[in-house]
Amino acid sequence: MASESGLPFSSDMPAAASKPRSIQDIVSVVVDSVWQYVHVAAAAFLFYEDRLLCLYSLVGFASLCCGVVAASRTGGVVPVMGEELWRIAIPASAIISVTTSLGCRIAGWVSAKATCCLCVLVPAAIVGLTTVTVRNDKTARLRL
């Protein structure tokens, strides 16, 4: 039976036509979630192979968290609600960590000089960048 506009009702559709659609939905959900696990496994393998990158990434993440806490304590803002944290601070801290690790690897600094960069330069740069970026974010101030 068709409607007045000539389009069929959903009850007019045979059961076989709706079954492949549900299989397609299941396949798309599986494919959409599998890529996340593939990325996590690839990052774990990369961190296993390059421990200096893993170390710089962990220090970068800890420094980012310290910068967010410092900005929220002193600036009177809600850092995670602002746009600048997600748009500028997080990608910039990732870039700083990865490029510093790569630069140390290329320069051959895998011991004392890399530890100096790790302990002093990277955390200071990321905490400073995050604090300044979040503190100057107007959308984070408006959400109080």
Rank of each mutant, 00 (worst) to 15 (best):
Q24F: 13
D25H: 07
I26M: 04
I26H: 07
V27E: 11
S28D: 12
S28H: 04
S28E: 07
V29A: 11
V30T: 13
V31M: 15
D32V: 07
S33D: 06
V34G: 07
V34T: 15
W35C: 07
W35S: 13
Q36E: 06
Y37E: 08
Y37M: 14
V38C: 12
H39N: 09
V40H: 01
V40Y: 10
V40R: 02
A41W: 06
A42R: 03
F45I: 14
F45L: 14
L46E: 03
F47H: 03
Y48R: 09
E49G: 13
D50C: 01
D50Q: 09
D50Y: 01
D50G: 06
R51L: 03
R51G: 03
R51W: 04
L52C: 01
L52D: 00
L52H: 04
L53Q: 02
C54Y: 03
L55I: 08
L55S: 06
V59G: 01
A62G: 13
S63F: 07
L64C: 06
C65G: 00
C65R: 02
C65H: 01
C66Q: 06
C66V: 14
A70S: 15
A70I: 14
A70D: 05
A70W: 09
A71E: 01
A71K: 02
R73M: 13
R73I: 10
G75Y: 00
G75V: 00
G76A: 11
G76E: 12
P79G: 10
V80K: 09
